[in-house]
């Protein structure tokens, strides 16, 4: 693509969404850092939850979007669906990596280890691997549509496999260690903590929506077909068979 990419122009809907995201983020920050008390057991480290949980939620929402958009793309072959899938997939991979990294940093002081073989952690890592592959297959060929079809296939195979991966890991875990003690967010939350968490989830969702919208528009610019000058309408070409000697 030789033409410079202009940043997508903002629409009133964009401005509303941006304002809503900024407001929700501000509320979430105040609630998470000022209003919510530190955890009685975990101390300040528990505040990572207000980023870790929304990041994981947003990642799952993104991957569900990838599934829906991938199916829609294969059915309609409309590249708009592929752009939605790609934008959601990119954000989903980023959010999954963030959730895993924050979970690890949070787990270190709380569990005394960077990593535990917890079903949710394993499932999340498998998701990260599958969707990193999803993004990688886009660069396999030169044709835009071929890349989109391959990515859609991985988006579908990857997602329908996730529940099976999850249950198999849960059963496997149950077999080796009946009761899990590794889920701090399963405890009953203080009301202020719950409010901060809810605000953070809303802020992340709005911000994710905003990012995906802008990315979709940027991808649409990349996909824009150059105008083809075709002054002469094509005449039909007919090949017939002459009698053979």
């Amino acid at each position: 693509m030789t033409a410079p990419l202009h940043p997508p122009r903002s629409t009133p809907a964009d401005r509303t969404l941006t304002a809503a995201t900024a407001a929700a983020s501000l509320v979430a920050l105040v609630l998470a850092l000022v209003v919510a008390p530190p955890d009685a057991v975990q101390g300040q480290a528990q505040r990572l939850m207000y980023v870790h949980v929304p990041a994981a939620w947003l990642a799952y929402a993104c991957f569900a979007t990838v599934l829906v958009a991938s199916v829609a793309y294969l059915l309609t072959r409309d590249l708009r669906w592929d752009r939605r899938a790609q934008a959601a997939g990119e954000l989903g991979v980023g959010m999954t990596a963030l959730a895993i990294a924050l979970g690890s940093i949070w787990g270190r002081p709380v569990w005394g280890t960077w990593w535990v073989w917890d079903p949710r952690l394993i499932t999340t890592v498998v998701l990260l691997l599958v969707y990193a592959g999803y993004l990688s297959v886009r660069g396999l060929g030169d044709d835009r549509g071929t890349g989109a079809r391959r990515a859609a296939a991985v988006g579908i195979i990857g997602f329908v496999n996730v529940p099976i991966v999850h249950f198999s890991v849960v059963w496997w875990r149950t077999l080796h260690q009946p009761a899990t003690v590794l889920s701090p967010d399963q405890a009953v939350l203080d009301g202020r903590m719950a409010a901060a968490l809810l605000a953070a989830v809303v802020a992340f969702t709005l911000a994710g929506w905003l990012v995906v919208r802008r990315r979709i528009r940027q991808l649409a610019l990349l996909d824009a077909e150059p105008a083809v000058a075709d002054p002469e309408p094509a005449r039909p070409l007919v090949v017939t068979a002459k009698p053979q000697p």
Partner: peptide, 10 residues
Amino acid sequence: APVDLRVASG
């Protein structure tokens, strides 16, 4: 440019 082509058998 877009092609219209008919090819007869044989």
